[in-house]
Write a protein that binds this DNA or RNA. Structure first.
Lengths: 266, 266
DNA sequence: CATAATTGTTCCTATTTCGAGAACGGTGTC
DNA sequence: GACACCGTTCTCGAAATAGGAACAATTATG
């Protein structure tokens, strides 16, 4: 309707609209037909057809006059995670990393140019909410997290530029890298030392250290990271101990993947 | 495809096919265009269009020639759970129930005639895998779980028959109720005593006790249950202690919901 | 208590979109 | 180096969808 000037018309509008409806239902926490129709600039009758179809396919439930996403999404989400190669071979190690450092440990990968968390574990000292049961935040940009930068540093240059061009270098704190040259220099450093740091670049008072996880073929699959308050992530612990442990965890996960990929790729 | 003779045909085939593709991708753990096309009896070009659209909408990722569901589903699933009224007001109580009984505690609701788990907590004595990170099993039928029967017992009669007719009374163990009259008698008992039991009706060696959670208006919203091996769930513990605690938990969750709907809803 | 205003649902037809086969370009294999 | 396979693109006829309007059901309102 409004903006797909560059992309080829090889996509299905009906499917696209269905996706919009799913995302709108999530955002609105359920909605009625009229509300949705107004929100998405569709006719009531069309909106109704979409909802009826999604309901029949059990992706949507209807309570009274309110349509909401069904718990099928919880099931699908858990399956997606369970099937992910990084989860299968990195879950235990991420837990150990959280245990050893006492802080939050994250396992993530890049998807569509954004950071997607696969697994988060709260270490014994970790502050904040219980991540795994709280509201999930939106996906992060890659350039202001440690794990994200670790991934960016090992992406093919072409894809790096594609992502930067598409997502931009949004600023979140005074420390956020917003300049492409600074970023490139930082990524070179990361490649050299084998890990990345996030020094209050996303959230004031929060530091993090992340290391990339690569496939046997050398393609970056994702990263592990540890994050915590600057008060605890400082001095030698921040400069040496945590990086060592994070890099070690990444290496162990790589080894796990390596051992499991004896089978053919197809 | 074959079994919706009653429902009006007010649904969109394109959306329906998109849902099939999502489910196939989950089932196949990712697939190529040709593989998917064969699996769903679609042409390659059509399948490609669907996948391209889902990818553009970030519900699907492409790795090499393999398309898979993206981690957006994990995000959506967590949001759906987080937004669910039973999770918001029943999470803490479910955890407490697991702690007090030492066994698995479940929080569930009915969707599309099936049991959907909202939250599972492993108590200190609970055996088995860590549910919340393991592969999710498929949704259960309602008639052979304690929570499911607790819900069925408080559904409007019309809806009860609708569900039974649609889902049937599948047998999983010799103890499974497979007869409508037996089920009705059982549901009457459940209504009388306020809770339901599952005595090896789903899995041999596993018992469970469930109690319904109703809205202030008297509509059943779901149920909580405790499950464990017959060796531990026996005698007075099974006959009195656990039912008491389960019913108490259900009542507390109802009270939480009640209090939240009194104040301004937002 | 009756009327008005919403909301969800259904119906219908023109119009747009989708579907299928074939062809293209790229990759891996024998 | 030729062949087979896969993903992608193209084009046009065929079929599905979008939207307006009417209907039913529920709720708000005077």
């Amino acid at each position: 309707m409004a903006d797909t000037p560059d992309s080829s018309r090889r996509t299905l509008e009906t499917v696209s609209r269905a996706c919009d409806i799913i995302k709108a239902l999530e955002q609105l926490n359920g909605a009625g037909v009229t509300e949705l129709a107004n929100h998405l600039d569709l006719s009531k009758s069309s909106t109704h057809s979409y909802l009826a179809t999604l309901q029949e396919k059990q992706l949507v439930v209807k309570n009274g006059n309110t349509y909401s996403l069904s718990l099928e999404f919880l099931y699908l989400g858990k399956t997606v995670r369970y099937q992910h190669i990084l989860f299968q071979h990195g879950k235990d190690q991420t837990e150990e990393l959280a245990e050893e450092t006492g802080e939050f440990a994250h396992l993530m990968c890049e998807q569509h140019g954004l950071e997607r968390n696969i697994y988060k574990v709260m270490g014994p000292n970790a502050i904040g909410n219980e991540y795994h049961t709280s509201k999930e935040q939106n996906p992060d940009y890659l350039h202001f997290t440690s794990a994200g930068k670790a991934v960016l540093a090992h992406l093919p240059e072409e894809r790096l530029h594609e992502i930067v061009n598409r997502q931009g270098l949004i600023s979140k704190t005074p420390n956020t890298i917003t300049d492409i040259d600074t970023l490139n220099a930082e990524l070179a450093t990361i490649r050299e030392q084998g890990y990345a740091v996030n020094d209050e670049e996303e959230i004031r008072g929060i530091r993090a250290v992340g290391a990339p996880i690569c496939s046997p073929e050398g393609m970056v699959l994702g990263a592990v990271s540890v994050s915590g308050p600057t008060s605890r992530l400082s001095g030698e612990f921040y400069a040496e101990t945590v990086p060592e442990k994070v890099v070690e965890s990444a290496n162990i996960i790589e080894a796990n993947i390596n051992m499991s990929t004896k089978k053919s790729q197809f």
